[in-house]
Amino acid sequence: MSAAVPIPDGRVHVSLPELIALRARVARAPAPPVVSRVQRSGQRPGRLHGRGMDYAESRVYQAGDDVRRMDWRLTARSGVAHTKLFQEEREGRLLILLDSNASMRFGTRTRFKSVQAARAAAMAAWYAVRGGDRVGVLAFGGQRQLLRPLGGARGALAVAGAIAAWDALPPGADETLSSALQRAGRLMHGASRVLIVSDGFAVDDAARGRMLGLVGKAEVSVLTVADALELAQPPAGRYPFAHGGVHYDVVLQGDRQRAEFARALGDGVRRLSALATGLNLRERTIDTAADPLDAIVALLGTGRAR
């Protein structure tokens, strides 16, 4: 007997029409800054002088310079031979690391964390291509899939379609963040940025070392997606849960019991926040009921370096 096809309701499962419709929401946000896309290493922008598209500056002619790059106007004006230098134009690339571990399929407000993460990733894709970037997505955890970066609206549509398709697949085994970062590190070439979207439960002891390696190749930012119960101590009461088709209630009464429950649920948020803070990465946290756009703009917008 074949497995039931998930209903894309936008609450428990990702809705592709919603991910596509988020394009209009992103279009009303402040436009990404126009910056030169040059080869870089880690967080430090660099400059390539060669035969490119953007004029950078002129300097005094040196033996071996290509005569086709002579700045004849400045040479005539100054009486000294000058050569034009160019800044090579490169497309920026954003790779979204999207957590699909089992812990993401949880939510008590509005939608599952997995659905909120998908919405945030789609917004990031629409925002990135609006700024002229190519965008791709690497799923880790229950799905271990890769969509290589593509440009323009086609790239954002491909990201939305891939995320929706992966969400409908049966989940596989969980994966650590360090494993995902190792795979992502093999994909970083030239100018690039990475956005990690996760609830933090995949953070393991080896993640910091892997993250350091990735930071040396790309500009990394972190978006933590959390349920309301993971961000604050819950009030006393009875909480219905379902896991693997089994429904049960958790009754929380005393302060100590509620505090221990909140501590266990909030462990992922704390671990991912500590990792990002320790490496001085841009970081934002949203719950499952929030509009992710402000966080996306803060992480990918003003002040970004290439």
Rank of each mutant, 00 (worst) to 15 (best):
79 G>Q: 05
31 A>D: 15
114 S>Y: 05
16 L>H: 02
296 I>W: 10
227 D>K: 06
240 P>I: 03
67 V>F: 08
198 S>T: 13
6 P>V: 03
225 V>F: 05
40 R>E: 11
44 R>L: 15
155 G>V: 06
2 S>T: 04
168 A>H: 03
185 G>Q: 07
4 A>T: 04
236 A>F: 11
192 S>L: 12
159 V>F: 05
108 T>Y: 04
127 Y>E: 02
11 R>T: 14
192 S>W: 13
284 R>L: 06
5 V>T: 13
208 R>P: 02
165 A>T: 08
47 R>E: 11
96 I>H: 00
10 G>I: 08
84 K>E: 13
306 R>Q: 09
141 G>H: 01
216 G>P: 01
285 T>M: 09
178 S>Q: 13
125 A>H: 01
270 R>F: 07
92 G>S: 13
152 G>I: 04
289 A>L: 04
142 G>Q: 02
78 S>T: 15
163 I>Q: 01
272 L>R: 02
155 G>K: 00
248 Y>I: 06
89 E>N: 07
206 A>W: 07
221 S>M: 08
137 V>R: 00
51 R>F: 08
90 R>N: 05
25 R>S: 14
285 T>L: 14
176 T>V: 05
261 F>Y: 15
230 E>K: 04
158 A>E: 13
98 L>A: 04
38 V>S: 14
246 V>Y: 09
52 G>P: 07
110 T>L: 12
115 V>H: 00
284 R>H: 09
162 A>L: 12
145 Q>P: 01
236 A>E: 13
212 L>D: 03
213 G>W: 07
5 V>D: 11
109 R>A: 14
147 L>T: 01
6 P>Q: 10
259 A>S: 15
58 S>K: 08
292 P>S: 11
48 L>P: 02
280 N>E: 14
281 L>T: 00
43 Q>N: 12
254 G>Q: 13
287 D>A: 09
46 G>F: 03
228 A>S: 12
